[in-house]
Amino acid sequence: MKVIYQTWWKVLAVLLVLSTLTTGLLFRVPVLPILHETIRNLYFHVPMWIGMLSVFIISVFYSVKYLNTGKEEYDLAAVECVNTGLFFYSLGLITGMLWAKFTWGEFWSGDPKQNSAAIAFLLYCAYLVLRNSIDEEQKRAKISAIYNIFAFPIMVVLIFVLPRMTDSLHPGSGGNPAFGKYDLDNGMKIAFYPAMLGWSLMAVWIATIRYRIRLIEYKKNSIN
């Protein structure tokens, strides 16, 4: 846990994202119908989901750790990771809707990818509701940790597996190629991979700040 107090990876995150702001807007991209220049959204829309995924994975890790040790700090880490993840989730959904408006024609066209993303969003909102509905601390931590561990794989299946098995407008579904397969040429990777890593680190950074604030609050409350 010492690493969350260090600075180097925060600088790395900023530099990576900063580099993609330039490379993402300037570098050559494949010329594709309908998409046109909006293909550059790939550098900003997808990293939101990767950032969300990173903090959700860390959250599950700390939920498991909490159940193993019963240490309250791990529960705090888990919930703050989910909070940050939901923020990036919203950004991913909103940017996706905007992108969909100009490529699919509607903000929300009931596409399987959109629908299951919405369901998974509610799934994680339910996590927070569940947490806030239990007053007793240990019970709350334990139940929400278990819920979190189950919610994560369901979210992954809903967002990343099920839409790919049906016909969806979203790339990577029902014979519709994902960017990674045909369209993401080597020129795009220069901007895409740093963006994924950079935004993931940004998400983790925000989560650690929230966790540290939460820890101080927790300590203050337990003294009184």
Binding site: T23, R28, V31, H36, E37, G187, I190
Partner: peptide
């Protein structure tokens, strides 16, 4: 990766 700037993009009308 800055040197990639040097490559003038191919004839795309984007």
């Amino acid at each position: 990766c800055v040197n990639v700037f040097a490559q003038k993009s191919a004839q795309t009308d984007m």
